[in-house]
C-alpha cells in the first residue's frame, strides 16, 4: 500500500480526509484513483507538486511507487 497525504486545499474537497492508503503501482494510477473518488480533485492535482519518498516532483506522471512509498501533495514552487 502507498501512503498518500493530501494538501490542505485537497482536504477541503475530501471532507477533511488528509491521508489515504492506496494499492497502486505508479503515480498515474494513484491520481486516477483519487479522481475516481473525488472528481473535483483533478484540477488541484494538476496545480500541485508532489513528493514521492522525499523527492519533490513539480510534474510527476508515471513514476513507480513501491509498497510503503509515501506520497505528499504540496503546492508548486517556482521561485524567482
Amino acid at each position: 500500500m502507498v501512503r498518500v497525504v493530501l494538501s490542505s486545499s485537497m482536504a477541503e474537497l475530501t471532507g477533511g480526509v488528509r491521508e489515504v492508503e492506496l494499492a497502486v503501482g505508479n503515480y498515474r494510477e494513484l491520481t486516477l484513483t483519487l479522481c475516481e473518488r473525488w472528481p473535483q480533485m483533478a484540477a488541484l492535482i494538476e496545480r500541485s507538486a508532489v513528493a514521492i519518498d522525499g523527492q519533490i516532483y513539480q510534474d510527476a506522471f508515471a513514476e513507480a511507487l513501491a509498497s510503503g512509498s509515501e506520497v505528499f501533495f504540496m503546492p508548486r514552487i517556482e521561485g524567482g
Binding site: V5, S7, A51, D53, G54, Q55, I56, E70, F72, F73, M74, P75
Partner: peptide, 12 residues
C-alpha cells in the same frame, strides 16, 4: 535528513 518538513515530505 529524514525530518518531516512542515510542508509534508521528509527531507533527503
Amino acid at each position: 535528513e529524514g525530518t518531516q518538513s512542515p510542508y509534508g515530505p521528509k527531507f533527503p
